[in-house]
Amino acid sequence: MQRLTALFAATMRAAAFLTRLSISGRFFERLPSRTPGLSPESSASDASEGTATQRGAAYRLGDDADAFPLVGLIAAAPAAVLMIALPALGLSPLVSAIVAVASLVAMTGALHEDGLADVADGLFGHQPKERALEIMHDSRVGSYGAIALVLSLGLRAALLAELAATRPLLAAAAVFAAAAASRGAMAAFWALTPSALDTGLAARAGQPTRDRGRLSLVIGAAIGLLFAAPLAGILSMLAATALAALAVILLRRIVVRRIGGQTGDCLGTAQQLCEIAILLGLSIGS
């Protein structure tokens, strides 16, 4: 019971940073560090600066990385319901999928999409490391970022629509599976990739330990299997796993080579690429 209570509290704290939900400050009160040997640092999530950063400078988001997949379930819940309810009301699979993707974006305040756009602008311009990091820090969206956003939103909507056209229940399950597994992969990517900047967002938020990152990956994969395996074929599951792993591995190699490691924007990019890869894999053979 005590472990479940701690996991629930960790999920609520992480949700304060990774979603637009208003989380009670009591989850941040008298919070000891969950990572021995690390001194508390100020929390740093620009998207939640007006809320979560006021709940205690001792909080480290990375200490709750194992709860990221559960936050994914929270963020995905409205979209999954929409994927079942809207077709039942007579809307087409494509319209239903577009509205569902819009709800995913609204639940997170486009936190991960913003990271994807910044990384696309910074890395695809073939700029030196210092200039690439400057571009990624710039809030303005360039051509590469806009293209990345269109592709991400369009692919997710199209893939969900394709699933919904033949297997509506699998489409709803895929929303949950992709949201949880992609955030587990994001936590593992964060834990296993060096920081490009000591003063960057991801570094200030407290990089999780490797063990915690791996645990988050396992939890996310288990949740993904729980939702998708009963409805998807073996080929689809294998494809989703392989494509997601390939996406994260390639991203890690690129960011380490280009900018020396990960930033907060890279974490959002890892989540987006992994989510698309899982949806694509589940669409194969379905």
Rank of each mutant, 00 (worst) to 15 (best):
L201W: 05
Q127C: 00
I223L: 15
L123A: 11
L169A: 11
E113Y: 04
M186K: 12
S103Q: 06
R131L: 10
S45Y: 08
S195M: 14
V255I: 15
V99M: 15
A205L: 04
T209F: 03
D211H: 07
V175G: 11
S42N: 09
P36M: 11
P78F: 13
D198Y: 09
D66T: 12
A178M: 02
A85G: 01
S286R: 01
G285I: 04
L250K: 07
Q2H: 13
G261E: 00
A80Q: 05
E49K: 13
T166Y: 02
G90M: 00
R258C: 06
R212H: 13
D114K: 13
G142E: 11
R204M: 11
A240T: 10
S48I: 02
S139G: 14
L246H: 11
A117T: 08
A148E: 04
L104D: 04
S152A: 15
G233P: 08
D63P: 02
Q262T: 12
G145T: 03
I147A: 14
W190R: 03
R214M: 14
D211T: 10
G145V: 08
E275T: 05
V105N: 04
R131W: 00
T166S: 13
L225I: 15
G122F: 01
G261W: 04
M12T: 10
M83Q: 10
A187K: 10
D121I: 08
L243C: 11
L231T: 01
A244V: 04
A14E: 02
R204N: 08
F124M: 10
A120I: 08
L133K: 05
A161C: 03
F176Y: 13
L163R: 09
L94S: 06
D63Q: 15
W190L: 08
G264Y: 00
G125A: 15
T53I: 11
A79P: 13
D121T: 08
A222M: 15
A191D: 03
A242Q: 02
V71H: 04
A244G: 13
A57L: 09
A180Y: 08
S286A: 12
L273V: 04
R214C: 05
G264W: 00
I147E: 06
G213V: 05
T11V: 07
G184K: 08
G115L: 09
V141S: 04
A10I: 00
G261F: 06
A242D: 02
L155W: 08
A196Y: 05
V141W: 00
S39L: 13
